[in-house]
Computed example of a mutant assay.
Amino acid sequence: MRWWFKARRGHLLLPLAMALFAGGLYAVQDTSVLLPSLTGAPRVALSLFVPVPLLACLMAVLESRLPAAEVSGVRSVTRLDNLMVSAVAALALLCGVLVAAMNSTASAVTCGRNAVFLTGLMLLGRAWAGQTAVMIPVGWLVTVVVVGFRGNIPHLWTVVALPADNPFAAAASLILFAVGLAAQIRSSRKTA
């Protein structure tokens, strides 16, 4: 397992990703910015974009592999990958809760939930698009900003723009994450 983690460069990239995520959460806190939109002029929480470096590092870790060797190996690398992704998502959620507790801000918890949602979206896209699926969550965020608001109120389908205590957003995040993990089982068996 140690060799698998080192081959994935997890020992270098994942601590960097978590430090960027925690630092970004702490830096932006409840800052919101006015962004251009087709459906109004929403004030968007800057923390919406904090998970992007975490997702980029996670994709880099998942894609540093030798597909032929992993498919022919005895150990299930897919299970290890899913455990690693689950641990990163859980740490992101825990980091959001800790920053929220330290600063009394709900946007940090929302950011942790959004990291789980966007990770699931990225994994689902990875099954079909490969490494370029890292851009799918970025595209989702841009779509949310451009057409996801009615005035300053987010639509339900946006998920990432909904408040921290929204049960639909929590359920959608968990479901999409589970679907993404299932899609990763299928995609990691491919050799090309």
Rank of each mutant, 00 (worst) to 15 (best):
T105G: 05
S76F: 02
A170Q: 14
P42F: 07
L13G: 03
G130S: 08
G139W: 06
E70H: 10
G139T: 06
P51H: 04
A133S: 15
W3D: 14
T143Y: 03
G40D: 06
A17I: 04
S37M: 07
A171R: 15
M122L: 14
F168Y: 15
P163F: 12
L141P: 03
F149D: 04
V146N: 04
L118M: 12
V71L: 13
L156M: 15
A106P: 00
A17G: 10
S104W: 08
M102Q: 07
A89N: 06
L156Q: 14
T191N: 09
L55S: 04
L48I: 04
A171V: 15
F49C: 03
L46D: 00
S187R: 09
A182M: 14
D81P: 01
I175P: 11
P53A: 08
F177C: 12
L124F: 07
V138N: 02
G10K: 03
A127E: 04
L93C: 02
A60E: 11
A129I: 08
A22S: 11
R186Y: 13
T158D: 12
V146F: 14
A19M: 13
A56L: 14
V134S: 02
L54G: 03
R2T: 13
G24A: 05
G125P: 09
R65D: 08
A108P: 00
A87G: 14
S64C: 04
R189P: 00
G40L: 07
I136V: 15
G130Y: 03
W3G: 03
R126F: 08
G96N: 06
V159G: 13
A172F: 04
P163N: 15
A90I: 11
A172L: 10
H11M: 02
L121C: 09
A27N: 02
F21P: 02
G120H: 06
A133W: 05
V146D: 05
N82C: 15
G130V: 06
L46A: 15
P154F: 12
A182P: 03
A115D: 04
G151I: 07
I185P: 00
E63M: 11
